[in-house]
Amino acid sequence: MIEITPLAVSAADLVVGTAPVSGHDVRLSLAPAAARYSLRARDPATLAGVIGRALPTRIGDMQGGIACLGPDEYYALLPAGERVPDGAGLPVSVVDVSDRALGFVVEGTGAAAAIATGCPLDLDRFAVGRATRTLFETVEIILLREDTTRFRIEVWRSFAPWLWHALVAAIADR
């Protein structure tokens, strides 16, 4: 018979850490609260006019806190509480998703390697200022490279505990 010993930690007990976790060359912490908007439009100029901000022009670029995720899709990460006009009646979609995700900051010389434990992107080819939706193992994330050694990960809140602990495990096993 297979004897299943009780687990020290069950999946139900996983929570996002409140304190940063550090390895010898990488540190994981929770980003401060932010305003998040999903912005969509066929015509970027119309959307830029609605929100009163410039938009990045190439998929994967970031500008002024706004990342271009797809041909008609932008993701805005703004200071908490900041509001964006909803462009009612215009051919745009502005949706407040501030509470949909949590932000993680992964920084240090080992940051890319820690993320590469579960992310299939070639991070050596993922320049500073780039952003994309991708995966960490089975979990959808938005990955933003803020600096050579600093990344931000946006993850839907119910997946955040799993991702936090998967990254902690990755840091511990570096």
Binding site: I59, L69, G70, P71, E73, T132, R133, T134, E140
Partner: peptide, 13 residues
Amino acid sequence: HHERWRHTYGCGR
């Protein structure tokens, strides 16, 4: 074979 794919965990297209 001509087939459809979606870049679901990318640009979504």
